[in-house]
Amino acid sequence: MGEEQEKQTKEQLENSQKWWDQRHKRIEVTDVSGPVRVAPPKVEDMPRFPPVTWPTPDELFQKNLEKYRQMALELGAADARIIPASDVPQDLRAYYVGCINPSCRWLNTNANCPVVRTFPFDQMKKFFGEYRFAVVFKVLPPVVEGVPDVGPVDLDMYYTMGGGPAPDRAMLARNIIRLRILSEMERRIRAEAYYDGYLMAAPMGSGPCLLTKCADIRRCPAAEKGGHCRFVDTQPNGAGCAYVNYHALGTKLGWGRLQVGGNCAFPDDVPVPNEYYNIGLILID
């Protein structure tokens, strides 16, 4: 091996390790707060993945699933499990009661929520039926000044445009931080699976992408006539569009009852802070 080639190989290995470490680093509040990056990073700053051959041999499947589970934990999940995809409960109520009746504040506001994006229930059942496993993880709200970041700050989420003074930007960012952490975790795990050759790995959106991506501009360009989404890492909402019943899922996995936040859930009122969580879900096959 020539000296130049040897140097190149060494460099590639070092880079690979560097990107690997970066991809598995715990996601902190500071990593996801602030304006969302829209332009891709420069080539030298771009996360790199080693090339693999697809279709991936089936022998590696279980090992890779375990890798994604571990990755979720390393990224900051409180718990992560591998479950059969058929165990993910799907329920029409997740859409009908969760989004429509009563109307969710985010209904019809973005391209990844009903009514703009609606799929038939039977198609979603069939879609889940084509996967063998799902990686599911729970994310607790970040602790801010010693208490879980729940409660009255959520009030800002119900701010209606044109309905009074806009909330403080910092408060708004704090509101959406746990959803942003969750969506960043899903994005990284899905990317890992995709570059391992599981091209059909499908993450479920958690929360409206208007909050996780476009909170700064407070509108969805994709939902406007002739407009397009600014991002590639957004996906339809898991509950509203894919009918995932996260409440039943959390209970089934022994994570306790998923406590819903809201205007009236102060930190003192949350009896079991560990049960105030969000769920990330990625279908892999």
Partner: peptide, 20 residues
């Protein structure tokens, strides 16, 4: 044929070309 190719390929996550 699998229905997942449409959903995972175009929507979960969004394809860059979706809606173009």
């Amino acid at each position: 044929q699998g229905i997942r190719t449409r959903f995972a390929g175009c929507f979960f996550p969004r394809c860059l070309s979706q809606g173009l």
